[in-house]
Design a binder for these strands. Structure first.
Length: 108
DNA sequence: GATATGACGTCAT
DNA sequence: CATGACGCCATAT
């Protein structure tokens, strides 16, 4: 399992209608602090069936420039993601990556 | 190994 | 809110 797959798997965990930041994805994939690399991993996501559009910059801001960014916003709106001005409504559409840790917890 | 690149994140102005 | 600068790190050459 390489970096690529880890990142892509994390992105795949984002349900329709929800979004997450590059930093969150990196953290969820087990590579905190590699937000930059997440973007790199999504370069070919479009061809790999990865819901790349659900990954935004901090604060729900679209970082893709030009038409690509417009396209991303359109895709998200079609999924039900609401936008407040130029940013996605992270308050309601921000996905919270559940604790993937399978470690048992006795008392809670 | 060294250099260059990038869909980031944070701080300062 | 916009711009500039820096830190961070995997990949590509």
């Amino acid at each position: 399992m390489g970096y690529f797959e880890k990142i892509q798997r994390a992105v795949l965990r984002i349900p329709r209608g929800k979004v997450a930041s590059y930093g969150e994805v990196a953290r969820a994939a087990g590579y905190p602090g590699t937000a930059r690399q997440v973007a790199w991993a999504l370069r070919n996501a479009e061809a790999r069936g990865i819901p790349w559009q659900r990954v935004l910059g901090q604060g729900g801001r679209i970082l893709l420039p030009g038409a690509a960014g417009l396209h991303q916003r359109t895709l998200l709106e079609l999924e039900g993601v609401r936008f407040l001005g130029s940013r996605a409504d992270m308050r309601h559409c921000g996905y919270r990556f559940g604790p993937s840790r399978s470690k048992a917890q006795s008392t809670g």
